[in-house]
Nucleic acid binder design. Structure first.
Lengths: 237, 237
DNA sequence: AAACCAGTGTAAAGATTCTGTAAAGATATT
DNA sequence: AATATCTTTACAGAATCTTTACACTGGTTT
């Protein structure tokens, strides 16, 4: 991955210089502007991963730059200020800043905050693609597509079957009672002589066994069912 | 959109009570735990949008909870602490927290920080989708002219049909529920017995099938529709 | 050990829900 | 009004879910 680019908008040239050096050392590519107008122009460049924005500046101050960028700006912004003023801080956040750091600050804290923001973005992007997915004991469950794979092979489950398997896999090695299944999946209390859960379990088992040697759903007589986590058959699902 | 859920993990029950009230008033759904162990258990629930995590707690302290969650935790975390200690602050961020707020704090600042984190997530998710023009599986969608091409041939879709196809293509390989389609495209909640989406889907299918051999919209019974990304017919649209 | 019994597995039948689509009606646009 | 578009209605068919029925299991009582 290429270096992340950070734009510093601050009229304090001495500070800017120091920060540039420090952040470069930490592996970022740094650009700097010393007033709001030119900063705003650079900001539209869009190739920056993050903007460090000073509040007190000539021409356009930090808040005005924030407003100009509009609330839905794509580049995350970390505000810097000389004032420790609370209202300033909150105002910045409300106007769309992602974080706020009062001068003077330790370089290490600045770095930690920058990384926190960038890390969150990375995680969100990953999750958006990799969608919530879990794999236990060679059974993989894709929520986005509602698909289940056993040993890399697609297992066709119905909606209810999928939800029950999901519930069981979310409680690996824990007993899940029929009552819980009924309430969480079917939205109703388990009534006497209701055998539908038994049927669903039976169907899930049958479908999974078409691809796995061992049964992964264990019955606990009188208590419920468990999804077994044990590494029974050894491949990479 | 449903309410966002926030989990508070803090042993100070009085504070927790106040925060719950305040955040509920601001439109969040709030749950609370009073020690690290139970908090960690709830955190795995995964239905929370954000966690407020106190550092000083019995059993497991906040840092230990952070470590237990691992760096790549999907739920954003805002740390709270009584100490104004810088090193604590930085340590939390380095361990994977998204932000840090020192007690005592103003409710308004807390709210602003919570919103800043959630807003960033929303923006990232949106931007990941918003491409001006896209082509998937031989279907090309031109936003500028609102035209759709399938295998280079113009497909005449109505406005609603275009928007539905757009939504589905922005979520390739993800299930889009009828509810989402209704809310995002028609700006209304899906009411019972409303079959109009079925009709639109049916029409889109019919129009696309005039130019493609294979159906690209897959029905997931009881869940919604998916635009298939698979390279079914092999040319360059 | 035999009888008993509640809980379970599962095939098959029955009931229910969801979807596809034609056609008619309603609404909006020109 | 004429046209295009969207929604509702209606029915058929498909997929799914539930119930029924009977066999089996494991534990308990006699």
């Amino acid at each position: 991955m290429s270096k992340k680019k950070i734009l510093i908008i601050d009229d304090d040239k001495e500070l800017t210089e120091l920060l540039s050096e420090y952040l470069s050392y930490e592996g970022f590519e740094v650009a700097a502007c010393h007033d709001g107008v030119s900063g705003l122009a650079r900001a539209y460049d869009m190739s920056f991963s993050l903007i460090l924005l000073d509040v007190m500046m000539p021409k356009l101050n930090g808040f005005e730059v924030l407003k100009a960028l509009g609330g839905q700006h794509k580049i995350p912004i970390l505000m810097l200020t000389a004032k420790g003023d609370h209202d300033d801080r909150v105002l910045g956040l409300e106007l769309g800043a992602d974080d706020y750091l009062a001068k003077p600050f330790q370089h290490r804290e600045l770095l930690a905050r920058i990384n926190a923001i960038l890390r969150r973005i990375t995680i969100v992007k990953q999750n958006d693609n990799n969608n919530v997915s879990q794999k236990i004991n060679n059974v993989r469950l894709e929520h986005a597509t509602r698909e289940v794979f056993c040993h890399q092979q697609l297992v066709e489950l119905t909606g209810t079957e999928f939800q029950i398997l999901d519930l069981l896999m979310n409680n690996v090695s824990k007993i899940v009672s029929k009552n819980e299944i009924s309430e969480q999946v079917m939205n109703r209390k388990l009534s006497a002589f209701d055998r539908s859960i038994d049927m669903h379990i039976s169907n899930i088992r049958r479908k999974l066994l078409a691809f796995c040697p061992a049964d992964k759903l264990k019955t606990i007589r009188g208590a419920g069912y468990i999804f077994l986590s044990g590494e029974i058959d050894g491949d990479k699902g």
